[in-house]
Amino acid sequence: MTLTRQGAAVRSPAHLRWLQDAGQLLVVDEKARRAHVLRGHEAALWTWFTLGYSYDKALHLLAAALKCPPAQAEAALRELLHSWQTLGLLEEARDGESGD
């Protein structure tokens, strides 16, 4: 999405809750009353971000997981952030706000 491609910060909205189940990560959007299931590297990335990893550090881990050069991993990472934004799992982070 334009936002991430321009390098602006994104954040998880305050109305999301998530848990780790066997084989999947469940993200519940309380506002939309929807659940999203994340698996594989997508779930791994979500977890790394919740653990406070920066974009660059998460990228490094993703590149190791995908066994590919960081540049190639970065395309995948940006694509993923884009899709999360589309699904409402991320939103634009504006200064001075702390989620809804």
Partner: peptide, 15 residues
């Protein structure tokens, strides 16, 4: 069992 720790990601400009 659910967690609610918000996080923020700041991707750099495309490179």
């Amino acid at each position: 069992r659910f967690q609610q720790t918000p996080f923020q990601v700041t991707p750099p400009a495309e490179r």
